[in-house]
Amino acid sequence: MTCAPPNNPNTALQLDAHGRLRHFLTLDGLSRAHLIDILDRAEGFLGIARQAIKKVPLCRGKIIANLFFENSTRTRTTFELAAKRLSADVLNLNVNTSATAKGETLLDTLRNLEAMHVDMFVVRHADSGAAHFIARHTAAHVSVINAGDGRHSHPTQGMLDMFTIRQHKGDFTRLKVAIVGDVLHSRVARSQITALTTLGVEDVRIIAPRTLIPAHAEATFGVTVYHDLRAGVRDVDVVIMLRLQRERMDGGFIPSEQEYFRLFGLTEKRLATAKPDAIVMHPGPINRGVEMDSRVADGPRSVILEQVSNGLAVRMAIMSLCIGAHNFNMNQQDAADE
């Protein structure tokens, strides 16, 4: 697969010479073929949940370290479970509470884990660019998967959302998708927008007050900005709600939860202008009564729990792709050395 856009530095960092995924840091720079390939492979992993023994031996003997510099039990659990279903050995490190507090630098932590022959880092960090930094500085035998970096990127979440959309809607090209909420601070939104546009969705809308829309969003992302929820969700096939962090509700970006819900909270009534078969998604955890009404969250159009189970298959696919590419390259290297 050599169809990645040229001159994108992400391409050189993420892909090897054969176009295989070495690291999975961002969707920016991956081609449509790459994304489709990931979705197709994830289909295969769905079946594992039906096995009596919910485990395949793909990554047997591999060590996967969950490096969480930012607490997130939910995300860490899905990565941990995905790794375990691939038969890998999993190390969980909450780094903010241990090493770095003692003055050890991030690079020191990495070097220590590399010396333990870790094969993959799954990284969650509060700083945008942290996964890129780690990928640039890690040893050649380690793959890095971004499990969320600052406001930048959360590519596995983006892919599992695409997987869920494809399950319900099939073809992407004719879809209208609305993303509602705090796009400014959302790594999830950035990954979703990149994935949707790469997969050929021409009508992507972001809906929020101006304080939560990043600068030049339309020109940067090729989306349409709406400030009115009802107009924004008209005729859409998919509504993606974003999480509004508590700390944004204190008056700095929006005046209050109440006003936000009044204007941008998703209710059944407001959803009425969307297509009758529109699905509603949310990366979780939901602030009920702020982002959406419980009747929508638990209603027939909600696919929120499917997102969770799909997340496992998608993460298994991505992890095994990276480890597989890595195995291949190490063998090539050995062959070249002989």
């Binding site: 492979r41 289909e43 295969g44 769905l46 079946g47 096995q51 031996p57 793909l58 291949f328």
Partner: peptide
């Protein structure tokens, strides 16, 4: 049955490109 996830050459050639889900219509116990 799809055996891609169980192949012994994964460590040499990586993940097989076409993986179809295995399908067993009834419990096999």
């Amino acid at each position: 049955l799809d055996i891609s996830f169980y192949r012994d050459d994964f460590t040499r050639i990586g993940l097989h490109p076409q993986v179809r889900p295995s399908y067993l219509p009834v419990p096999i116990d």
